[in-house]
């Protein structure tokens, strides 16, 4: 099936979504996605950042679609023509969505562990405005404790539902979900209890913002001060392939390996993530290449310019 996105034409399998077709083309025409996660079935459609304009439905029925559509949940038709960054309407709507996501966000980036690898930061930087028009009080929630490994900050949540899908599809039993309605909706366990199973830590990796963070890494370092290294170990629960984030010779945290859309390649177990923090636990393979858009990769990899700071911090081997 042929689909044209912002003037780039590509042949894709039937059933491919517009977003995935755009990812095959690559580059700046790929719509941002805050809730869609290719590894999680049924995800997507909620955040509305990936809205695109379909200017021609298909070869058979060339009528344009009247409303903007969520590219992550709309499958391509043969001959479809899509406008993303070339459509004023799309850019305007996306700006609106970014604003909506930010009005109740606490903007506590200076004390947020996600800062530096946060999708909302990236999104706001690319599509948002520097000023806010929101003058009301921001929404807050009562803090709830969901266990000794994962920290939940509900104020930062953007309701992408990814952690819910992860718990449904990766772990053996989901004990948390979305409670209440509208802007009072929150992630919770209803009767306060710990989310405790072997793969629950993956919720941290799929969370696009700092709503779910790693308690074992909490306030230890900014992510751009630690060095990501590919590492592996023999694990009887998961693939054992992970990224260890090192500061000098210490492992500060362990995450799954991620692709360029910041999606987990292989989910890892909690033992690897939370308990194996010794260098001797891991076979360290070498620096992990981070080719996604993020401050962690800014100035440090192939395209980057040489700066002195990374060397001081031990980034030397990665600088081109």
């Amino acid at each position: 099936m042929k689909v044209t996105i912002d003037g780039h034409t590509i042949d894709v399998e039937p059933g491919t979504t517009i977003l995935n077709a755009a990812r095959m083309i690559g580059g700046e025409i790929v719509p941002p996605a805050m809730c869609y996660y290719s590894k999680l079935k049924d995800s997507g459609g909620k955040c509305r950042t990936c809205l695109v304009e379909v200017t021609k439905g298909s070869e058979k029925d060339p009528r344009p679609m009247p409303k903007l559509v969520a590219s992550c949940r709309t499958t391509v038709m043969d001959g479809m023509e899509v406008k993303n960054i070339t459509s004023e309407r799309v850019l305007e709507a996306r700006k609106g969505v970014v604003e909506f996501l930010l009005i109740n966000h606490p903007l506590d980036c200076p004390i947020c562990d996600q800062a530096g690898e946060c999708h909302l930061q990236d999104l706001a930087y690319e599509h948002g405005t520097a000023k806010t028009r929101y003058e009301e009080e921001r929404r807050t929630f009562d803090q709830i404790d969901i266990g000794d490994k994962i920290k939940l900050h509900m104020t930062r949540c953007i309701m992408c539902f990814r952690c819910v899908f992860t718990a449904d599809q990766i772990t053996d039993k989901r004990v948390h979900g979305v409670l209440y309605r509208g802007d009072a909706a929150e992630i919770g366990t209803y009767i306060e209890k710990a989310i405790d199973n072997d793969f629950s830590g993956n919720m941290i990796d799929v969370c696009p913002v700092g709503a779910l963070t790693d308690k074992t890494f909490r306030f230890k370092s900014r992510v751009w001060f630690v060095k990501p290294m590919n590492a592996s170990r023999d694990c009887d629960k998961c693939c054992g392939k992970a990224v260890v984030w090192m500061y000098g010779n210490e492992i500060y945290r362990v995450t799954a390996r991620k692709d360029k859309y910041d999606e987990v390649v292989d989910f890892i177990c909690n033992t690897c993530r939370f308990d194996k923090k010794q260098v001797s636990d891991w076979n360290i393979e070498g620096p992990a290449e981070i080719n996604r858009h993020s401050v962690i990769s800014a100035n440090k990899y192939k395209k980057g310019i040489k700066v002195t700071a990374p060397k001081v911090l031990g980034y030397g081997n990665n600088v081109d």
Binding site: K46, R181, G182
Partner: peptide, 22 residues
């Protein structure tokens, strides 16, 4: 509408509350 928004998608969840407050 603020009270009845399901909270699933961003424009409605955040926008209805915003309009109500203003």
């Amino acid at each position: 509408y603020h009270h009845e928004s399901c909270g699933q998608c961003s424009p409605c969840r955040e926008g209805t509350g915003w309009m109500e407050k203003v």
